[in-house]
């Protein structure tokens, strides 16, 4: 059951990411990124992170991607022009990315038995739910970082308003 979920949504996520890579129009890339984020939300849920699954759908797939699509439509972004791009990116970048992937996969597969495996659903102790545990930690030991986050968001809003004004 869980293996089927993982394979299904893992393949969906990889397909969405590849579609982001190969589509030329930004709006198609944005919609395939939404697919990736939705399937990642399902994977979070199967790893026992229900709160993060909901936050992923609301914050990423909802808020951030709507912002992206608004900007694509506001700027009337058409299809990408066919340019050769930077040579260094092709010579060093793509093999570098492939090398990083091979290294990571090798390490993960060789440590596979020590990493263990996952059963469906939550893992936290007793009757404590995932959301209760997260909020308890967030509002007791991590209260200061949580409050600093609100200042960060305030500054980000002010910065966005200042940057997007008509006369800069």
């Amino acid at each position: 059951m869980e293996l089927v979920l993982f394979i299904l949504f893992g393949l969906l996520a990889v397909a969405g990411a590849l579609n982001l890579l190969f589509q030329r129009h930004p709006i198609n890339s944005a919609l395939s990124l939404v697919v990736v984020m939705m399937s990642l939300a399902v994977l979070y849920w199967s790893l026992g992170a229900e709160f993060l699954a909901a936050a992923q759908v609301i914050v990423y797939a909802g808020a951030i991607m709507v912002l992206f699509i608004f900007v694509v439509m506001l700027l009337n972004a058409g299809e990408e022009e066919e340019t050769h791009g930077s040579k260094i990116a092709y010579i060093a970048g793509i093999p570098g990315a492939a090398a990083i992937f091979c290294l990571l996969s090798f390490v993960f597969l060789s440590e596979r038995s020590r990493l263990g495996s996952t059963g469906l659903g939550g893992y936290l102790s007793g009757a404590v739910s995932n959301i209760a545990e997260i909020s308890h930690t967030l509002f007791t030991t991590l209260l200061l970082p949580f409050e600093v986050t609100s200042i960060l968001i305030l500054i980000a809003i002010l910065g966005a308003v200042v940057l997007a004004r008509k006369e800069l």
Binding site: A17, S46, F101, L104
Partner: peptide, 30 residues
């Protein structure tokens, strides 16, 4: 059950596709 390593490899695949898209794409929004 699913080995944790599979989740990590899926994350590595997505990360490397992200790197490739970052290097290949010419549109700043993409």
């Amino acid at each position: 059950t699913v080995p944790i390593a599979y989740y990590l490899i899926l994350a590595a695949i997505l990360f490397c596709i992200g790197i490739a898209a970052f290097l290949i794409k010419r549109n700043v929004i993409t």
